[in-house]
């Protein structure tokens, strides 16, 4: 396990370096530079040059990159060109929103997907199976931003049950926080639920086919106990993995859902950075999201290796 962990971490290093190169250079390719974005339409060349010097934008790219990387490693992601706020603290202040959104959507996804997947597998080939498969297929196909809009239409505008957007911190008012996060969480969770349902179904089918299940059945173990104690437990390994992988993808999905529900998370910050051509902020958020994505996948791999001892011998 230790050797596997070390090897897996080592293979992630060049990828992380690659991400940093892309995050740094891609932002330099964005049309119009920060200087013109800050100074607006009327400025003199001397002013622009002074600002470029101040921001370090007039040095060779390779030097800019190495300085930037050095700073990044020490936790300094630069400052937002617009608000002057340090990028790292801007990200950290938005992080609880995104983490909560992702956590709630995984919660919803698991709550919906596991019973649905088990039902489909048990009723294999019958109408429950067909319905579960169809529901999960629709879940994969419905765009999250449309589902969000439909939820707003139903739960906010028509029924008036939940607020259509905005955010209240958990520690300020837990009730209001939950009301604000339910719809975004459910919206983002649906696509994951669809994928996890399919995985639960196929994994459950495989386990139900095993000899020990047939044996337990023959010995008269009640169906409910058989499913929960014997089948579900053993079919959960791939389900845990796919849920973990989806957690990474949720980071991408949250960019859109935060926009739909006006949630001030990291995804919203990245979009603001793109719209304002805020170099440092865009670099920081892109780097942060991609690195988190790699780390989540790394952790999922570790959990998988821990759950399934065969992995480390590969």
């Amino acid at each position: 396990m230790f050797i596997y962990t070390v090897r897996r971490v080592l293979t992630a290093l060049p990828v992380l370096l690659g991400i940093s190169v892309i995050a740094f250079f891609i932002v330099r390719l964005v049309p119009g530079d920060t200087v013109t974005a800050i100074l607006g339409a009327h400025y003199s060349e001397a002013e622009a040059e002074a600002l470029r010097g101040k921001l370090g934008l007039n040095r060779p790219l390779a030097i800019q990159y190495s300085i930037w990387l050095g700073n990044v490693v020490t936790g300094d992601l630069g400052q937002s060109a617009f608000t002057g706020e340090p990028v790292l603290s801007a990200i950290i202040s938005r992080l609880p929103v995104t983490i909560q959104l992702v956590a709630i959507s995984i919660g919803f996804a698991v709550l919906i997907a596991i019973p649905l997947g088990v039902m489909a597998a048990v009723g294999r080939g019958r109408s429950t199976d067909f319905m579960a498969t169809l529901i999960s297929m629709i879940g994969i196909s419905v765009p999250g931003f449309w589902l969000g809009v439909l939820f707003i239409l139903l739960f906010s505008l028509t029924l008036g049950w939940l607020p259509s957007g905005g955010f209240v911190a958990l520690w300020e008012d837990p009730g209001a926080n939950l009301r604000h996060m339910t719809m975004p969480g459910l919206t983002l969770g649906m696509a994951v639920a669809a994928v996890v349902t399919r995985m639960t179904r196929s994994s459950m089918l495989e386990v139900l086919d095993e000899e020990y299940i047939k044996m337990a059945r023959a010995k008269g173990v009640p169906m409910k106990r058989l499913l929960v104690r014997h089948a579900l437990r053993n079919s959960l390994i791939p389900v845990v993995t796919i849920t973990g992988i989806q957690a990474g993808y949720l980071l991408g999905g949250s960019i859109i859902i935060e926009q739909v529900f006006s949630l001030p998370g990291v995804g919203m910050l990245a979009l603001q950075a793109i719209n304002n051509r805020d170099y440092a902020l865009l670099q920081g958020t892109v780097l942060f999201i991609a690195v988190s994505f790699v780390i989540i996948n790394l952790i999922v791999d570790m959990i998988y290796a821990r759950l399934d001892p065969r992995i480390k011998y590969r």
Partner: peptide, 23 residues
């Protein structure tokens, strides 16, 4: 390695950044 690096960006983020460059 190039594929690994591209895979390490959530696809919508990569698409957004490319669109920000291209317009």
């Amino acid at each position: 390695r190039i594929f690994d690096i591209m895979f390490s960006f959530p696809d919508i983020l990569l698409a957004l950044v490319i669109m920000a460059i291209l317009g």
